[in-house]
């Protein structure tokens, strides 16, 4: 990647004060809030959905009794579902507002888009070659292919799980335009897709994003919104290089996050990971027993 070396050389001068670490914005406050709503409602939905899915298991019965029975569990599940639906709609509104009304470039296509492109395919194979020691490590753009997969998995998941969930919640209403067997299918789809989401998020997403050596034990950027220049350069070298080449790097400069906020985020994040891993273990024990 010769262009990156050039950029690094170019930037050898601006980074004159090595004592002062530079931070760059990755996520806006609004995006972080949506992620916070997403992960807290997802934990709530998982914690209340799993006992229903595995209603025969011992821990599900204990958990149900603990929170005041299944009336309470169902109420909480629906409450989280409504909140998450709201967050989903806000996000869809944001995307269309930015892409269509504000005509912001790069929303639907290009290096900063969530839409998969040819580079993602190349990165996937390149990454796999690197895993096996057969090639260099790919350099990633703003969103790497596994991050795009996470995004679309959640996007598709919310539509599928949401739709099947509402179909069961308001079954007589949905039965006006759905055939009867669709109501049977709704539960199969809802529970299988929910299980996939839970297994994926609590194992694959946790490891890929937080627990792998590059980010261990937790990538705080989704809480603080900023990351250090060093981390930015290493994890998303292509984006860093592109911004530098376009001269847009300075526009992304941000304040270092206050230490109390980092601590607070860390507590929230570890709690989420702990709950997630606990649910993962419970799911696996119920699934294989």
């Amino acid at each position: 990647m010769p262009e990156l070396q050039e950029i690094e050389l170019q930037h050898a001068e601006p980074v004159e004060a090595p004592t002062q670490k530079r931070y760059f914005t990755r996520f806006t406050r609004h995006q972080r809030s949506l992620h916070a709503v997403l992960f807290s409602t997802f934990l709530g939905l998982a914690a209340t959905g799993l006992p229903l899915r595995f209603s025969e298991s011992y821990w599900a019965r204990k958990l149900a009794a603990g929170v005041g029975g299944f009336g309470a569990i169902l109420f909480f599940h629906k409450f989280c579902a409504l909140l998450l639906t709201l967050a989903f709609l806000v996000h869809v509104k944001d995307v269309f507002q930015r892409g269509i009304f504000h005509r912001e470039k790069g929303i639907f296509w290009g290096p900063t888009s969530m839409v998969a492109n040819w580079k993602d395919v190349k990165d996937l194979f390149g990454h796999m070659r690197w895993f096996l020691g057969l090639g260099p490590k790919p350099r990633f753009e703003r969103y790497a292919y596994w991050e795009k997969f996470d995004y679309w998995a959640v996007f598709w998941g919310m539509i599928v799980i949401g739709f099947s969930g509402y179909a069961m919640w308001f079954a007589p209403f949905f039965a006006r335009f759905l055939p009867g067997w669709a109501l049977n299918a709704a539960l199969v789809i809802h529970s299988e897709e929910g299980l996939l989401a839970i297994l994926f998020i609590f194992s694959i997403h946790f490891v890929n994003t937080h627990l792998r050596p590059d980010s261990f034990p937790m990538d705080m950027v989704v809480f603080t919104g900023v990351e250090s220049e060093e981390e930015f350069k290493k994890k998303r070298s292509t984006e860093y290089a592109r911004l530098a080449a376009e001269g847009k790097l300075e526009a992304r400069l941000a304040e270092a996050p206050p230490s109390w906020y980092v601590k607070f985020s860390r507590i929230v994040g570890f709690t989420a990971i702990f709950i997630g891993l606990t649910l993962l273990v419970l799911t696996l024990t119920a699934y294989f027993s």
């Binding site: 096996l132 050596p213 705080m220 603080t224 250090s228 996050p257």
Partner: peptide, 22 residues
Amino acid sequence: LWLIRARVDQVHNGSGQGGNHA
């Protein structure tokens, strides 16, 4: 595979000592 490769990289090249958790 990623975990194994990243760990090997970490040991041999000293890379990936965690994020700085900003």
